[in-house]
Amino acid sequence: MELIIDAIITGILTGGVYALMASGLTLVFGVMEIINIAQGAFVILGAYLSYALAQHFHIDLFLGLLITMPVMFVLGVLIQVLFIRPLKRDRTMLSILVTFAVALIIEGVLTILFTANIVTLKAPYITQSFRIGNFYLSYIYVYGFLLSVVLLAGLYLLLYRTKFGQSVRASMLNRTAAQLIGIDVERVSALTFGIGVALTAAGGMAFGATTAFNPGSSYDLISRLLTIIVLGGMGSLSGALIASLGMLIIENVTAVVWSPTWSSTVFFVLLVVILILRPQGLLGKLEGRKQ
């Protein structure tokens, strides 16, 4: 029983980090109707940036985010402007291919710079843990969770309390109508893509601090992130939150009561069952006919 409670707590804490990574993905989908396959590669890139800063300049992982997040933001905007904006027809499909190409290039660059060896981030708070009641919690899980909460709250404020957020939400509701009332949808798209990528810098640091990684880790990540946003309903931020918490709790509990090898399978089976009952996901809108 204690093990199960422990698994649930770990699930909630790591689920927060996944929510951070998935929210960027679902936000980009909501605004641009494109699926960013490179999100997993961006997470790994973010992890490596933090790794490089910590190794060569001895910058603390959390302080380093002040550098890596703006860098990743600019990178995201550039990729949107250079590669995604020129796509005029078959946007959905071609954007998948383009972002996959970006993911391949990132993986290649990282392999050349850092080799394919598995690395871990190092900091005193990663190895230390503290005790609440009968449970031992690692500091990094708590810090990573708090970081996610702060950033997600910031994202919420940006979306619901600013004029830019209003344009983002308007573009999500109806791209054409937003254009008609004078919103520069292309600019909003570029900035949204940048924000989505910048969030992965933080998510990547928290991911890299809890998991060993190499340039090829992005495939496993992107499959999880995609299932999270499908389960939550594509384009729904709160759906992505619920789905990532649910996924990580289910995985951790399955790993304890059954076996770690089957932990993702249980989640995938659950995904299939939910899709049979609710094809649009937990909080998604039913896709109807669009004119």
Partner: peptide
């Protein structure tokens, strides 16, 4: 059972 983008994913 799904369409378009969701189908892809």
């Amino acid at each position: 059972r799904t369409r378009r983008h969701t189908f892809i994913v």
